[in-house]
């Protein structure tokens, strides 16, 4: 019964995410609304952690598996990118590295700054 109940809650929240997606005219998928709903449910105590944990962690463990079919689909995309692939590849690489490093640096510097402030307060 435990796993069935956990699965039921996660599927129900996924469905609620779809309902929100239907009513809110934004290009935001059901999964993002669902994640916000489940987090709100957990944080408010409405959904106890024990009511979703094992089944949820199983799904998280196989998350990459669920994306794998889409990635394998890259073999069929040559036709649509063949004219400009080098340009596209360069832009994709460069922007990904810029974002990664900029974000990492900003988070680390902000943390250091607020840690310093706390020490100063004490």
């Amino acid at each position: 019964m435990k796993y069935l109940k956990q699965f039921l809650i996660i599927i129900a929240v996924s469905f609620l995410g779809e309902v929100l997606h239907y009513f809110i005219p934004l290009p935001v998928p059901a999964s993002i609304y669902g994640m916000i709903l489940l987090f709100a449910g957990l944080a408010s105590g409405l959904i106890p952690l024990a009511a979703v944990r094992e089944t949820g962690m199983f799904l998280v463990e196989i998350m990459l598996v669920t994306i794998l079919p889409l990635m394998a689909g890259l073999i069929d995309t040559w036709e649509i990118v063949k004219d400009s692939w080098l340009k596209y590849l360069a832009i994709t690489f460069i922007t990904t590295f810029i974002v990664m490093v900029a974000v990492g640096k900003v988070v680390q510097l902000t943390m250091k700054k607020s840690a310093g402030k706390e020490e100063g307060d004490a």
Binding site: S14, G17, L42, V60, M63, P69
Partner: peptide
């Protein structure tokens, strides 16, 4: 298998919590 991507993403709320 891809069908499970939505409940898997929803479940990311658990490690976050």
């Amino acid at each position: 298998i891809s069908y499970l991507v939505t409940p898997a993403t929803v479940s990311l709320a658990i490690p976050l919590y």
